[in-house]
């Protein structure tokens, strides 16, 4: 399973963006900074990156599972 995931580019992409999302969400919640434009951009971008990361991780895990057991 892990080998399949590592072969699938969606997995590292999802992993990287989930780390970025976690950092931005934590910054957005615990150290909120609203600059010009009137929006907490860390929180906003963290949420968008989190959703994207979940999508990439989810589809890579589903693809690895549907491929069946490794030989």
């Amino acid at each position: 399973m892990l080998n399949r995931l590592l072969d699938d580019l969606r997995f590292p992409i999802g992993l990287l963006f989930s780390i970025f999302a976690a950092i931005l969400l934590v910054m957005g919640v615990f150290s909120p900074e609203v600059r010009d434009g009137g929006v907490n951009l860390n929180l906003f971008a963290g949420a968008v990156m989190g959703a994207f990361a979940l999508f990439m991780l989810g589809t890579s895990v589903l693809a690895a599972r549907s491929a069946g057991p490794e030989k």
Partner: peptide, 11 residues
């Protein structure tokens, strides 16, 4: 530099 707070600035 104008819009991004620390964190998103790194991204």
């Amino acid at each position: 530099s104008h819009f991004y707070p620390s964190g998103l600035l790194g991204v």
